[in-house]
């Protein structure tokens, strides 16, 4: 089987998976015990109001109509018609801002934790069996058993409440809402560069500073949550390669140990690392949900958290789909990447 067929096969599988997620998504909320109306009808509502709300969520339509509509909406990425039970506003209003916040959080912490974890993993593998190795492995195992939310709470306790170093909540200063009310609640961008049809805004220094200052604690927590996995993975894959003959050859040539480790070992050990970067996307999101909850960080994760508290099922459903979609796409990319990078892989 060639690369092309391999890609097509993975694409078909991913598409089936997306459909599966949609069906699952629909089934879960459809089979929910109790009447859906109870979730949003408040005491004291008049009959017409209730009817209007039922029409808003199309609960008067038969299940299959709603299902087809949902398939269409989700596949086309259209959340204008999806209303939150809590705010009774379309989900699309909040999605962009929250996505940006979550991306900042996840992106930064992933990069930091990858670099940190892989470096420590290489060191650990190099000194395998030693005291340092034992300590590092033990510490990464410990991060698996530390509840992330507790770590976040400890960080707030120490760095925010006791030391007053960092703020304990929100992705950016809360007073922006009032200071920059006329320009949309955020500091105006420093410049906008038009590229083609779209213009890309370069954020001002104030915005960057504010965001960085507020993101340090959550990013630190999420980094601690992830680095252990990277460390163990890097250690394992370096240990696989470190015994290969070409490594011995490199050493015999008299190369520096650091050069051997970083150029000869890590380069060849990095294949599983690259793919698992994509594969760990779902794991990362789990961490983000919890971290955002602790820090009231307005992103996807805290939206899920809020929706659970308010039983806001349309939001939960949409979030679940988007996250699953991201993970499926990331997996697809990982598969493709794997196939392209390593020609030895049997496409099967």
């Amino acid at each position: 089987m060639g690369l092309r067929e391999y890609i097509i096969k993975r694409a078909v599988f991913s598409f089936i998976l997306i459909l599966f997620v949609i069906v699952l998504n629909f089934m879960i909320f459809e089979l929910m015990p109790g009447r859906v109306e109870e979730m949003f009808i408040r005491p004291g509502m008049r009959r017409e109001q209730v009817d209007a709300l039922i029409r808003l969520w199309e609960l008067d339509q038969p299940a299959w109509t709603r299902f087809l509509k949902m398939v269409y909406n989700l596949l086309s990425g259209n959340f204008v018609n999806t209303y939150s039970y809590r705010s009774q506003q379309p989900i699309s209003i909040e999605i962009g801002m929250r996505l940006l916040n979550t991306m900042i959080l996840i992106g930064t912490s992933t990069v930091i934790s990858m670099v940190l974890g892989i470096l420590l993993g290489v060191i650990s593998a190099h000194k395998r069996g030693g005291k340092l190795d034992n300590t590092l492995v033990l510490m990464s195992l410990a991060t698996y058993s530390f509840p992330t939310f507790w770590m976040g709470m400890l960080f707030i306790l120490v760095f925010s409440i006791q030391l007053h170093w960092f703020p304990s909540a929100h992705p950016y200063p809360t007073d922006w809402q009032s200071i920059y009310r006329d320009v949309g609640g955020f500091p105006p961008p420093a410049a906008t560069i038009p590229i083609g049809g779209i213009s890309i805004a370069i954020p001002s220094l104030t915005e960057i500073q504010g965001r960085v200052y507020h993101s340090i604690l959550p990013v630190a927590v999420l980094t601690l949550f992830q680095y252990g996995g990277w460390l163990l993975l890097a250690r394992a894959s370096v240990l696989e390669t470190i015994t290969e003959d070409y490594v011995t050859t490199a050493r015999a040539k008299g190369l520096k140990e650091r050069t051997v480790l970083l150029k000869h070992v890590l380069k060849n050990a990095s294949l599983p690392l690259i793919t698992s970067a994509a594969l760990s996307f779902g794991f990362m999101l789990s961490g983000a949900i919890i971290t955002e909850g602790v820090f009231s960080y307005r992103g996807f994760g805290s939206w899920i958290w809020e929706s659970v508290q308010y039983k806001d099922f349309p939001v939960l459903s949409a979030m679940f789909f988007i996250i699953a979609l991201c993970v499926i796409l990331a997996n697809f990319l990982a598969d493709i990447l794997y196939g392209v990078i390593d020609p030895r892989i049997k496409y099967g």
């Binding site: 599988f13 089936i16 998976l17 599966f20 997620v21 699952l24 879960i28 909320f29 089979l31 929910m32 015990p33 779902g282 794991f283 999101l285 789990s286 949900i289 919890i290 899920i304 659970v308 039983k311 099922f313 939960l316 459903s317 979030m319 679940f320 996250i323 699953a324 993970v327 499926i328 997996n331």
Partner: peptide
Amino acid sequence: MRITDALLVIPNLPLLLVLVAVLG
């Protein structure tokens, strides 16, 4: 194995959350 893969891909915590929230 395809079903297993599918379940493995779906992010765990959101699914857990949704299921427990729905089931009570």
